[in-house]
Design a protein around this nucleic acid. Structure first.
Ligand code: ZN
Ligand code: ZN
Ligand code: ZN
Ligand code: ZN
Lengths: 169, 169
DNA sequence: AAAATTTATGTTATTATATAACATAATCTT
DNA sequence: AAGATTATGTTATATAATAACATAAATTTT
């Protein structure tokens, strides 16, 4: 079974774009992936994923808890939201940004996930990226050092093109 | 003024080696770098750095606190050790491993620090690495996406050669 | 050298992030 | 419907980090 591909060019998150489309696509893909994996995208999990997708800025677990409380007068305790996050991570629907202790929707959910992000200090947007040559380079470097990779996290913190432009206005 | 170069081949941390030499070199370099930077490597900071260098395994701030207490019957509170860590990070003498919330000695302290590590799940060793082609690739990728990098963190979690070998004995 | 300034450390309290352990509810399987 | 499994609720606690203010040590100025 072929899973759908992401419609997002790598760096669109930092540009103006139709974000309702991002959300719609993410939710549709999530449902398809969960069905494909025989996993249940429950109301809570769906709700958490939708909240994460409200922007391209990573959100912390406690921010999500507050948003849940606001949105539905349903106040959940930490374990509840962490379990939803754990599920979404397992399904490859979100990533954890280690430098921020925060979570963000995956723009190309599929079986294998490199976890590569550009993180703008100014606007907070995290842009997922991946190129074959970079991945080849990483893999070759690890091989040269006799290391077998189980999980990969590349986080580049700096300033995105949009913020750079707006600072020179 | 030329700063000393690291004597460590990239991946030695996962091999058997004379670790007292690692420690001695690290402490000497640290003193030189601080002098060069007009910074003060106080007794506490020196002690924390030495504790971090007791192995090639990243240590958490609270583990360091316990070790300080054991070593010198000096029990320090969190802010004290965090301030020492902050200083050592600023001087480029240690790195923070984001996936572990832990700190490790830098094997090639100098002005610019890519923060690239192989982290073995089995033995806990973190191996700092860097190749020019990988860095070129990262820089080119960021440039293509209009992103200017301020800080870089690559963390590859998996299994090192030594552990891989010992599992097939 | 004494005074003033800066830098470093000590101390107490608090914030932020995440998990353990156990109870209840919902869903799936037979 | 009964039993098994999975998901969520609940309470308490662990782990990581910082804020705010006090004291001490080192450096600079007079
Ligand atoms: Zn969008
Ligand atoms: Zn930005
Ligand atoms: Zn060593
Ligand atoms: Zn290992």
């Amino acid at each position: 079974m072929a899973l759908p591909k992401s419609p997002l060019p790598t760096s669109i998150a930092s540009q103006q774009h139709d974000h309702t489309q991002c959300i719609a696509t993410a939710m549709t893909q999530a449902q398809e992936i969960c069905t494909h994996n025989g996993a249940r995208l429950t109301r809570l999990r769906e709700q958490v994923l939708r909240l994460i997708w409200q922007s391209h800025k990573p959100l912390g677990a406690y921010a999500l808890m507050d948003m849940l409380a606001q949105e539905s007068t349903r106040r959940v305790a930490p374990p509840t939201v962490y379990r939803a996050l754990e599920f979404l991570l397992e399904q490859g629907l979100i990533h954890r940004i280690n430098t921020l202790n925060a979570y963000i929707g995956c723009t190309h959910p599929s079986a294998h996930h490199a976890n590569n992000f550009l993180i703008c200090e100014h606007c907070g947007v995290a842009i997922e990226f991946s190129t074959q040559s970079l991945q080849d380079n990483i893999n070759q470097t690890a091989r040269d050092l006799g290391f077998s990779i189980k999980a990969q996290s590349i986080e580049l913190v700096g300033c995105c093109d949009r913020c750079e432009a707006s600072r020179h206005d």
